[in-house]
Design a protein around this nucleic acid. Structure first.
Lengths: 284, 284
DNA sequence: CGTTTTGCACCTAGGTGGAAAGAT
DNA sequence: ATCTTTCCACCTAGGTGCAAAACG
């Protein structure tokens, strides 16, 4: 493969970006922040204290609760986040293609993982507001297990069933947006797209992709990090980032699609799958 | 078209990069540096004081001298550059694909310009040495007229002829490498490629491309700028950049290829033109 | 007449799900 | 039986020179 960079303080990053050394510092900060990265974490559960939440009756999964709360932007585990630098506390994020995400989530989103790495569809894209236009920020994503279960799909009943306890946790990785670090003004100028992010099931992946277990459920997380210019920035690491979780982006990692309705929705909505669209009327 | 950014102090840049505001400052510095940008300049002539220079006898152009000195890296107009910050004075640059550039230059390189913008081939690529690994640099290119003449190509004699005085100078633009600004370590890690740079003949271009007059000769220039973190960095603008000129990269801008041997060499060496290669033996 | 524009066939480069083969 | 891998036809996206038409 091509040239890559490995951060001194953590696992290999997704690529060699302009501010590689900045990322090493941020990586170290994240690893020590106890935010719940896969490497050191228990499964993530959406906070039950957020207002407006209701259990979904039509959840395709046995344990209904964690599928709920679509459409509400949630700050990850607020109780654990502590005081924040105003440079990040004022930041707001809107999920793009929200309607499409919800359509997938209603069916039970599946994301393909391959040895070489596969992009997500829909692509995780956000609009950002409230940054300090002149300050530097890094944007990144990671993925936390939604539970410690392994699933299988029952084709006859078109439903997901618990198949046992989760496989060993995969190496914890994060994906920095390739433009990181950049000024707040730049991030807010247009939609930020994570279309370079790829998912793999290869535990030995050497391309900096996100490693996931197939047949397991995950919650994508989005992190905004203020790049603190101060000398002792590591000490303020906890104050300098803010995390966002969109429940409607959760998915099951698969090596091949299980639910045919998911396949059809991918074909209908992903331009790269246009070759599989029927020439005339189709059913679903 | 898509979203773009315009620097406050100058013409539109090639794109909206992470450090757009940094670029505005650099742009202002360049415009005031009197380096010989098209907007305010007389034609560029290679310094005749450089050692090892000899006039080329086989120059395809009427005025032989400026075509010479292939293969020698030249610092632009050393007498005008003044004292330099050690962060840039120690920087060295090697032209990639030098043999290919020389092959083209021997025939008289032509570069297509179109309304929508056309990439250069060969692509301008360099290997960089001697940067401060921890300092921030911006890399950019611009193009200066090699003379104030307009040319035409005589097909019967396969030679370029002077067709008159140059057309009015085109709007002066520079192309920042999209990764700018980045650390020295990052720039030196691998070959730096300007494959996003596009040439146009559209005086009203709104895409930040480099605007050139067709049937005129140009010399590409490469600039390394140290991004000075000091408050009064504008005052040190002159000390903080270093320029490089490779004589073998000079070319004539055209809307259609004139010299058939140039066409054949492009087809033979550019992967995107593979469709025009003969299936068996070819002549030249 | 010399030069420029436009549409196009033909490439590179890489993102899709399908189908068959392989693995456990 | 279930899950994974591999190869592939078919797309998107965009970089080529060519040829005919248009321009001035």
């Amino acid at each position: 493969g091509g040239p890559r960079v490995a951060a001194a303080a953590g696992p290999p990053l997704n690529r060699a970006p302009p501010g590689a050394n900045v990322q090493a510092v941020l990586m170290a900060a994240f690893l020590s922040a106890g935010l719940g990265l896969p490497a050191s974490s228990e499964p993530y559960t959406l906070p039950t204290t957020s207002s407006g939440w209701e259990p979904r009756l039509d959840s395709p999964f046995p344990s209904g609760p964690s599928t709920g709360s679509t459409g509400t932007q949630v700050v990850a585990e607020p109780s654990k986040q502590g005081p924040k630098n105003p440079r990040v506390s004022s930041v707001t994020v809107q999920l793009e293609m929200k309607a499409l995400w919800e359509e997938f989530n209603q069916l039970g989103t599946e994301m393909i993982v391959t040895k070489a790495g596969r992009r997500m569809f829909p692509t995780f894209q956000v609009k950002i507001l409230g940054m300090d236009t002149l300050a530097d920020y890094a944007l990144l994503m990671d993925f936390v297990p939604l539970d410690d279960k392994r699933y299988r799909y029952a084709f006859h009943s078109s439903a997901w069933l618990v198949a046992g306890k989760a496989d060993p946790v995969t190496p914890g990785r994060v994906h920095f947006h390739p433009d990181s670090p950049a000024k707040g003004a730049q991030w807010m100028r247009q939609i930020v797209s994570f279309d370079k992010l790829k998912l793999t099931n290869n535990l030995l992946d050497d391309n900096g992709h996100i490693i996931l277990n197939s047949m397991h459920r995950y919650q994508p997380r989005f992190h905004v990090v203020f790049v603190d210019p101060r000398e002792d920035s590591e000490r303020h690491a906890q104050e300098n980032f803010k995390s966002f979780i969109f429940a409607e982006t959760q998915f099951t990692a698969v090596t091949a699609y299980q639910n045919h309705r998911i396949t059809q929705l991918k074909i209908a909505s992903n331009p790269f799958a246009k070759g599989f669209r029927a020439t005339d009327s189709d059913s679903w």
